[in-house]
Structure formats: C-alpha cells, structure tokens
Amino acid sequence: MKKNPLLVFILSFLGLGCDGNISVTETIYLETDSYISSSNSDNHSLSTVLKISKTATSEERIILKFPTGSRDQDTNMGDCLTTYPCNVFFLPVAIVTSLLNIVGTCVDEIKSNPDNLDWAILKLNTTDGSTPNTDLINLDSLNKPWWHTVSWDYAHPFSNEGLWTSQGGDINSNINLLNKTAGMETTEVCDSDTICFNITDYFKTVVTQTSPTHYGLLLSAADTTLTQIPIHSVQANTSFTPRIVAKYTGTCFTTSSEKGSTHYLGNELY
C-alpha cells in the first residue's frame, strides 16, 4: 500500500512512528562528603581526602550523600517550617528529571519503566593510585539525616535525635545497595585508581518511587582490619570527585538524529 505522506507526518507528530532507542550516560558529581573517625571528632567535611580504615583500636568511615538537584535552601526551610517532622532529604529525582528533559519525548516512557536504567555506578578515586578490591568495603545506606559536622557520635548537632544509635553511623538494613557487577558494561569498567560500586538496583528502586528518602551512604571496612585507603573528596574539585555514572536506554518516539546518541553531561545540570 502506498504511504500517504500526510498520514506519515501526522503519525510521526503523534509519536506513533519513527521509534528507536536513545542511550544517555550521565555523570552526577557528589557535593557533600566527609569521613568520621572513632578517635577524632573533628569536622572533616572540608578535607580534600576521605579516609577509610580499620585497626584494632580505631576506625575511619566515609560518608556521602547524593546531590539534591534543584532543591534549594529556601524550599527545604519552607518544608521544615510547615511540616513536622520534615523529611527533605530525598534522593534527587530532579537529577533524573533533568536527564529526561534532555531526551525530551522519552520522559514518560523512561519514568514509567525503571528497566530503562541500564546501570548506575558509584565511582571513587584513590589519591595514591591504588585500586582496592570493593569486597574490602561495605557500602550501606544511612537512615538518618546528617550535617557537615558529622562525627562518630553525632549525625548532626541540632537535637538529641542527631545522636547515632550505633556509633559510627546508623544503617538502613532494608536497603541493599550493591548488586556487584551484574549489568555493567565492560567498556565502563573502573580505571586502575578507581573504586566502583554498582548501585543499579538501588537506583531503579528510586526511579519508581515518588519521594524516596535518601540520607546518604556509609563506606566502612568489611573485615576486622583495613589498611587506610585515601580517596579524593568533593573538595578536591577535580574530575576525581566522588560521582555516580548512570546510563539509561529508552525506547521512544523521537527524531532520527537523536537515535543512539550518547550525552556526557558532567555536572552541568544545576
């Protein structure tokens, strides 16, 4: 049957034709981090190096949080003044939204299908060029909001609720962050001085929730001893900043020029 040019145009306009996959790889740089020490309660949020270690007498743990995208101080203040208890520490859906907005017509499809997230990796760079095995490190989700002055004893200094129930950070054991390396592409394997954690399943869960709470991540030694691993912090202000690299592929209706394109977005989202 001969195609009617007008019908093809209308179907294309309505998104009923010219479908294809779009792959988008995004790098999300973290903005807030610190490390806590069982032997030192100093504020380490401004340190350029994060430390993780464990000996018989002391321990250091790294604490991170995802950026909150377009949420700002005024919004959070307003929420906390009007709602009690306030719970503004959401995982940044805004980041996902920003990504999807770039794809444009893929918004609805990708939002409704978490399977469009191919993989998400938390990447950390060591300052000494070492490449520790990730099996040496536990990656857990925190269950309490924390502030820059976070220490071994306190998540934040603003109330008794700021005390960790368990010294060194309270963990939400209901959230399993790691799914090892399943789903990772070989082209995205870690460089020699990089530690990578595959958090794909966690990210997929987040995408399906309307207001997922995310208080941050805790990295601690998996065994009884761990030689200190120095890691570039947010303050290092280089491409080695702790970051999440995520790739999405969605089947969508869009112009052919966008099919199969890969966008490296860096931290230009804000």
Partner: peptide
C-alpha cells in the same frame, strides 16, 4: 516551629 536547612539538609 523552627527549621534548619541548607540545599541538601533539613531539620524541623
């Protein structure tokens, strides 16, 4: 009611 907030922290 009192609130403490930054871009990525909120406590009420």
């Amino acid at each position: 009611r009192t609130a403490i907030a930054s871009d990525d922290f909120g406590y009420g």
